[in-house]
Simulated assay, not measured.
Amino acid sequence: MTYANDMPTTENVVRTDAGLASELRLSVMRLRRRLAGERHPDNLLSMGQLAILGALYRNGDQTVGELAAMERVQPPSMTRTVNCLADGGYVERRSHPSDGRQVVVTLTEEGRAVLLADRARRDEWLARQLAGLTAEERAVLRKATPILQRLAQAD
């Protein structure tokens, strides 16, 4: 028979690396879903499409191959996504200056506006949630953020 006191608690589970991995995975996935739900209501783009706009905003013009590698998808999938974004006026495609076989993707003003409006809405929601935390909890998150970024970029 199992009693409530015998059930693993989050505090006990995260004492092992495997437990930490499990709890972190679950927490990050739930936060991602929650943030996705806070998207701007006028924005019909998928999270994958927004990620492409974000990559172009951060890094400037990119080839389809560079975008595919960055987002860890196959080039044909990225080509379809870029085509949809171009059809909507969010990006422009042009020939690569030195390699005619490649396409360079550029963020348009429309794409930039949609991205920034969507980010602002999600950032406002997250800032409200952070305001409810203690100063110590926010300090922990400030220290954890670069670590989470490294984990997200790891191979």
Rank of each mutant, 00 (worst) to 15 (best):
28 V>N: 08
48 G>M: 09
17 D>P: 01
151 L>C: 12
139 A>L: 12
7 M>Y: 08
88 G>Q: 00
136 E>S: 02
13 V>R: 06
96 H>E: 04
58 R>H: 12
41 P>A: 03
1 M>L: 14
113 A>C: 08
85 L>C: 07
55 A>Y: 08
139 A>K: 04
14 V>S: 03
110 E>W: 02
60 G>S: 07
150 R>G: 04
52 I>C: 11
68 A>H: 03
22 S>E: 12
113 A>N: 09
52 I>F: 07
95 S>L: 07
120 A>N: 00
142 R>F: 00
9 T>I: 05
137 E>Y: 01
139 A>I: 03
7 M>H: 02
139 A>V: 09
30 R>N: 10
53 L>H: 01
132 G>N: 06
55 A>V: 11
12 N>S: 15
54 G>E: 05
12 N>P: 02
119 R>G: 09
113 A>S: 09
64 V>T: 15
104 V>P: 03
104 V>S: 07
13 V>Y: 00
16 T>G: 02
137 E>Q: 11
127 A>R: 10
123 D>G: 02
75 P>G: 05
110 E>I: 08
83 N>Q: 11
142 R>S: 11
46 S>L: 13
44 L>K: 14
44 L>M: 12
105 V>L: 07
20 L>E: 06
122 R>P: 00
109 E>A: 06
119 R>S: 12
116 L>E: 14
73 V>A: 03
91 V>R: 00
25 R>I: 06
60 G>R: 02
113 A>M: 14
66 E>T: 10
152 A>M: 08
150 R>Y: 05
154 A>Y: 01
143 K>Y: 12
23 E>D: 07
47 M>F: 09
28 V>L: 15
10 T>R: 10
118 D>W: 03
39 R>L: 06
131 A>Y: 04
90 Y>G: 07
122 R>I: 09
143 K>M: 06
97 P>V: 07
88 G>S: 05
153 Q>T: 10
137 E>F: 00
25 R>L: 10
10 T>M: 08
62 Q>I: 15
53 L>P: 06
67 L>G: 01
118 D>M: 05
9 T>A: 00
95 S>Y: 14
68 A>Y: 01
72 R>S: 00
69 A>W: 04
151 L>A: 12
15 R>M: 06
101 R>L: 15
31 L>H: 08
106 T>E: 13
67 L>E: 02
17 D>W: 08
95 S>K: 14
41 P>L: 02
90 Y>V: 02
18 A>L: 11
45 L>E: 08
53 L>G: 00
94 R>H: 04
103 V>G: 05
11 E>N: 14
25 R>T: 09
106 T>M: 11
111 G>Q: 03
